[in-house]
């Protein structure tokens, strides 16, 4: 039985500094973490880079893309760093051969799933998926491309949804439900036929819940959500607003 199963992570609130500290190892370096902190946030503090895709600071953890997998040295098991809390004495490898190979294969699977053609994409050069491929040294995909037929939704006044470029990270769903509070986006279908839909699969433009705030567009890691009028490589996303919003909320300005 996992010890942490018996004791759920304690909620740490401001003004309560006596959080329990535990020590463990990342890449054979001794590190310390507060109870309830994820491996990813500890690694970030120690300047160890773990690539992520579905994770975005300020949104609830999801653990879907599996790009951030790290290896537990003792058991050889892979766990996602963005949602796994370390335990005392744990040893974690963030760049072992197994980890690097798995990340690459997972990234290849993502590329093979939809129609990711960088040369004609509005986000070319500003795309997190493209950046991941560069970082992980992915030069080609050796799995068969699935080439699904997916319709583009350009019914909204300002924005476009191109599901061909969607990686189902669900950042849009989470930001819309958790930050904007509109919950316009959700997922339709399951498995390989999952798709992002507005309301109950309405054209985005006719959605009665969308506030046109554009937060979904800004958090989207690829060119799946973009502003109208942007041409190839012109869509640059601004994600600074999310930590800003969080801070303002903490200070009760909003």
């Amino acid at each position: 039985m996992n010890p942490s199963a018996k004791r759920p992570p304690r909620q740490v609130t401001a003004g309560e500094p006596q959080a329990q500290v535990l020590t463990f190892k990342i890449n054979d370096i001794d590190v310390s973490a507060r109870e309830g902190e994820t491996i990813l946030s500890v690694a970030n503090r120690y300047n160890i880079t773990i690539p992520t895709l579905c994770h975005l600071d300020g949104l609830s953890p999801y653990g879907g893309c599996r790009i951030c997998v790290v290896e537990l040295k003792q058991s050889g098991k892979l766990v996602p760093a963005c949602i796994t809390c370390p335990m005392e004495g744990m040893e974690i490898l963030t760049h072992s051969q197994q980890v690097m190979e798995s990340r690459k294969k997972i990234l290849e699977l993502i590329f093979s799933e939809r129609n990711h053609v960088c040369a004609v994409c509005v986000s070319n050069g500003h795309c997190e998926l493209q950046q991941l491929a560069t970082d992980l040294g992915l030069t080609h995909v050796h799995y068969a491309y699935r080439y699904p037929h997916l319709a583009v939704d350009a019914s909204h006044h300002h924005f476009v949804l191109d599901p061909n470029r969607c990686v189902l990270c669900l950042r849009c769903v989470r930001v819309c439900a958790e930050i904007e509070g509109a919950h316009t986006w959700d997922v339709m279908g399951r498995g390989i036929s999952s798709q992002i839909v507005a309301d109950l699969n309405q054209p985005w433009g006719s959605s009665t819940t969308c506030t046109s705030c554009g937060k979904c567009v800004q958090v989207c890691p690829t060119g799946a959500l973009y502003e109208k009028g942007k041409s190839v490589a012109e869509m640059v996303k601004n994600r600074e607003f999310l930590p800003y919003l969080q801070e303002m909320r903490d200070r009760k300005h909003y």
Partner: peptide
């Protein structure tokens, strides 16, 4: 493949790729 919920990439895309092969 058809019962995968679609949340994580290895199960969502991996099962579809294996099935195709």
């Amino acid at each position: 493949m058809s019962e995968s919920c679609g949340k994580c990439v290895p199960c969502r895309v991996g099962t579809a790729q294996i099935h195709e092969l």
